[in-house]
Design a binder for these strands. Sequence first.
DNA 1: GACAAACGCGAGAGGTCGCTCGCATTCTGG
DNA 2: CCAGAATGCGAGCGACCTCTCGCGTTTGTC
Lengths: 219, 219
Amino acid sequence: MPENQEKQQPRRRQARGERRIAQLLEAAATVFTTTGYTAASTNAIAREAGVSPGTLYQFFPNKEAIAIELGDRLMHQMREAYGEALAPVGPATPVEEAVDAAVDRFIAFNCDHPVFFALMHGPDVPGRMTEEHDALHATLLSRIEELLASFLPDAPPADLTRTAHMCLGLYKAGLELVLGHEGAERAAYVRELKNVLIRYLRPLVGERPARTPAATATP
Amino acid sequence: MPENQEKQQPRRRQARGERRIAQLLEAAATVFTTTGYTAASTNAIAREAGVSPGTLYQFFPNKEAIAIELGDRLMHQMREAYGEALAPVGPATPVEEAVDAAVDRFIAFNCDHPVFFALMHGPDVPGRMTEEHDALHATLLSRIEELLASFLPDAPPADLTRTAHMCLGLYKAGLELVLGHEGAERAAYVRELKNVLIRYLRPLVGERPARTPAATATP
DNA sequence: GACAAACGCGAGAGGTCGCTCGCATTCTGG
DNA sequence: CCAGAATGCGAGCGACCTCTCGCGTTTGTC
């Protein structure tokens, strides 16, 4: 009984099918990025992939399933690229370093996969999409909270949760600005986003060891 | 120069019509807030207002016009409530005070008019709505930039613009969290949002609190 | 080579949404 | 009081969207 590729589906895919699925997901990614989830039509996705609408529904039961599968694969790629930990932080790492590493990683991932932002940011998603969205959100939040806990061992849990929410929100705001610019401007916004997070978190972790003289020479 | 009510339209409204318009806009506000602009149907708005679809189109040429008019009225209310200046800031006001006042005002307005957030936040808007959205965005940005300029007279214009974008983005992120909570939690998030902005801007205005003797002693 | 299953197609069924149109009702100015 | 404008209605038109269905094609297996 045990061996299976995907799930418990009695559906045997050929190599051609797997290729089509990848092709369709890629097309869906570009369409979602440009028009958003709700505005994206399955016909448009099929057209972008160069197949007929019927073919699309050979592989996905409905439009939502496309986004779900896309989200799952993105999540998987993310875990694969960065490992289980949000950011590997040693016991004496300064905040600056942790923020710098985490932001760089996430920004890089989001720039490589703009769909992620589209699926993340849109509360224009109906039905079961919301669950998936919330799951991802909760995952990220718990990672951030975990990371924060290593910096703030004696903070009340409620404060920790709030700070984590705040950090994620700030990151999303910064990400939007980063994705909206190119080249040097983009880099400048990344720098600003890091500044925001560092300056927000710095006062919370007063007695951290290294007072690194990094960045921002005072004018 | 003749007097006119709305614009150069040869459309004479009766008192009943004005009432219907207000009623429809109110209904549209609740529908937009709950479902967002794109997902909101004109039939739903008419139903919410207790009138027929045809009646709705007696007063608005299309769905977009409803949102536009709603946005205009909100904008007007905002100006009326807070005056032309974003926040009246004296020449020696500390950053803390300016941020505190500005955030309190905006948060109060957004809590009173949740539609504002819905119309603001949704890039799910097609066609000419985007212009209106961008116009509002630009207005807010220039106000913020203006305010920042009074704090940072010698900063390069590019940096000023970037900082203004960042502040608005941070505010929007915080607003989302604030609106997502109630009571004490909400107040805590307001506090956090202020902290974020203050700590972000503080290092940029090093020699600011020259006049106030009881300034912050802590580094 | 033959059979079954997977793949591929595209017209179109079924549904929703924005918006219109013809007609009834209410208001307003003269 | 009455002509005409403003208001109100709701069935329904056309466009579009998700998803289906029947049938032809390709692929894997023996």
